[in-house]
């Protein structure tokens, strides 16, 4: 194929600009650098082959991520890909389970004066590698939507289009994924002794009430 120099320049510049994001997403999808590199390279090669079919260049980013996602999901490159059954199982596991919230575990209304409270303190102590580890532990179907929304900023509709599922499915997987992510972060922090869980019998009235005091 003889390529138009202007097309080629646009394509190259766009890919170079997006490379850190493509690699960031690929790394969390594949969970190792070698596979992430192969995934990005394969997606870029596929994208170039299909570039003539892209009508609106403003959609380049979503289009490229869709190719990246589909390349990741394509069964032939990964024999141990997640099956529909495994996905249904992961979703059933969470059925009826209340969403896990770090905030609810840590928040103490009577400690609001304390520099944002223990929940903000938790966020200050959590490292990037803690977040990466918690993400890597998510079931694939949940990890995918969390990566596309929280990490890469795609809307529910864009993700639904990429994955070929209804928007409601994106929303529910995202909510379950976030709950599982917070639970994993919480358990890692607890195992590392990072945060002492709120005492079960804590009685707010036994703590000096300081609201309205000197802030």
């Amino acid at each position: 194929m003889k390529s138009d120099p202007e097309d080629r320049a646009f394509f190259e510049q766009s890919v170079v600009q997006l490379l850190d994001r493509l690699f960031g997403a690929a790394l969390r999808l594949t969970r190792n650098r070698a596979d992430a590199e192969d995934l990005v390279a394969e997606a870029v090669a596929k994208a170039w082959a299909q570039f003539a079919a892209l009508r609106d260049r403003n959609c380049f980013r979503g289009w490229l991520f869709r190719i990246l996602t589909n390349t990741f999901l394509s069964a032939c490159r990964r024999p141990h890909t997640v099956s529909i059954e495994a996905l249904a199982e992961a979703e059933a596991d969470c059925e009826g389970e209340a969403a896990f919230s770090i905030f609810e575990r840590l928040h103490q209304p009577f400690l609001l004066w304390w520099d944002g409270g223990p929940e903000q303190d938790f966020l200050n102590k959590v490292l990037r590698e803690d977040i990466e580890r918690a993400l890597d532990a998510l079931p694939e179907a949940f990890r995918l939507v969390v990566v596309l929304n929280d990490l890469e900023g795609f809307s529910y509709q864009e993700i639904a289009d990429m994955l070929g599922v209804p928007v409601g499915t994106v929303r529910s997987r995202l909510s379950r994924g976030r709950s599982a992510l917070q639970k994993a972060l919480w358990e890692q922090a607890r195992d590392a002794g990072l945060s002492a869980p709120k005492p079960e019998s804590a009685d707010p009235r036994s703590v000096e009430h300081t609201e309205g005091g000197s802030l």
């Binding site: 850190d20 994001r21 690699f23 960031g24 928040h107 944002g116 966020l123 990037r128 929280d150």
Partner: peptide, 24 residues
């Protein structure tokens, strides 16, 4: 209370967004 919750979730989301960028 809801404001604090919103601030917490917003900051956590911000931390996740930062993980989405990784120089190769």
């Amino acid at each position: 209370s809801c404001y604090s919750r919103a601030e917490f979730e917003k900051r956590l989301k911000g931390r996740l967004t930062a993980v989405g960028t990784e120089p190769p």
